[in-house]
């Protein structure tokens, strides 16, 4: 643990009492042939140690881009962060020089992706790739690095880790590969783990294994976990708080129990009513008409208004402000009362 403290001290302006992760008014644009795609338009998020924040949304809502901007792995060009701050313990990561960011990426904020096979290098054994992390970032010896690699594989519950450490990524099944990627992400004891659709490519029984592993590891390490997903079932099982994104904005943010029981944004409510349920057969699904908007051409006012059952003139004209309707509950909907039914 000493090395970690050393790194913490090395980051100028770091305040251990400041919030773990705070994204403030983040804006990201992609400049493409078809025009400027405004992928993220003023996102505000915060994350505490030991907490699971789920960022929920459909494809193109900006959830993955937000994560990439936090990690500093945005493809630039065409992507550009055009505004806002990403504060890690009070330090604005967006203003750090690239060399410092690289250290933050390895040691403090780690990320896992949907596709584990392409995230691992196929020509090296998983043991080598894990050990390399320790050798490069911690300067440990070869032998010690390998010992810790085995220990990590053990922690992510890969059976027979001592033998499997010398296997190549393609020799692992999909679920086991995801475990290896988790091990790589956790190798340097990060305080924040961002998981971008970590189980989308997996079967349900394997998905359950991985989610329970992530939950256990998070508890043991008191990590902040930011879970990016479109799956409202997974979210309900693991999240503490949920931020629902639509067209590059967080439209509603709330503790998990509240949002499922009383969604306070027309989009959240419609989304919950449109999914088939395992626990009852139900009648015809409630459909959200239309399509998510093209990011090059986001509707005026509230971006959801062309698809919204509650929409009226004001929704087309004015972007809804963020209403604080309860402690930790924020929603950007003009008709929050009607949606809540109060």
């Amino acid at each position: 643990m000493n090395e970690i403290t050393a790194h913490v001290d090395a980051l100028p302006g770091l305040d251990p009492r400041a919030p773990l992760l705070h994204v403030e008014d983040l804006h990201v644009e992609f400049r493409t042939r078809d025009g400027v795609a405004r992928a993220v338009n003023g996102v505000n998020l915060w994350l505490n140690p030991g907490e699971t924040l789920a960022v929920l949304g459909e494809s193109g809502c900006g959830k993955s881009v937000t994560a990439q901007a936090i990690m500093g792995i945005l493809d630039t060009p065409p992507g550009h962060v055009t505004g806002g701050r990403v504060l890690y313990r009070g330090v604005d990561l967006l203003r750090l020089p690239e060399s410092e960011r690289r250290k933050v990426r390895a040691n403090r904020i780690a990320m896992i992706f949907q596709d584990a096979l392409s995230a691992l290098n196929p020509v090296y054994t998983v043991g080598f790739q894990l050990a390399e992390l320790f050798r490069v970032h911690r300067g440990t010896s070869r032998r010690e690095a390998k010992r810790r690699a085995i220990e990590l594989l053990d922690q992510v519950r890969i059976p027979d880790a001592r033998r499997r450490v010398d296997d190549y990524p393609h020799e692992f099944s999909g679920g086991m590969r995801q475990r290896v990627m988790i091990a790589m992400a956790l190798a340097l004891d990060p305080e924040v783990l961002i998981a971008d659709e970590p189980t989308t490519a997996l079967d349900v029984t394997v998905q359950a294994q991985i989610m329970s592993l992530l939950a256990d590891l998070q508890r043991e390490r008191n990590m902040g976990l930011m879970l990016i997903t479109h799956d409202m079932g997974v979210v309900a099982d693991v999240a503490d708080r949920i931020a629902v994104m639509y067209a590059g904005k967080v439209v509603e943010e709330a503790p998990v129990y509240d949002i499922y029981a009383h969604p306070a944004h027309a989009y959240t409510k419609a989304l919950l009513e449109s999914i088939p349920r395992l626990d009852h057969k139900g009648q015809a699904l409630n459909v959200i008409r239309g399509l998510p908007p093209a990011l090059t051409d986001i509707p005026t006012g509230c971006a959801f208004h062309p698809r919204c059952a509650y929409a009226r003139e004001i929704c087309r004209l004015e972007p809804p402000p963020a209403y604080q309707i309860a402690p930790h509950r924020v929603t950007s909907c003009h008709f929050v009362r009607e949606v809540l039914g109060v």
Binding site: V287, R289, G290, L291, A294, D297, P306
Partner: peptide, 9 residues
């Protein structure tokens, strides 16, 4: 008919 998606812009 209510489910018809708007043409993609």
């Amino acid at each position: 008919n209510a489910t018809v998606e708007a043409p993609k812009p």
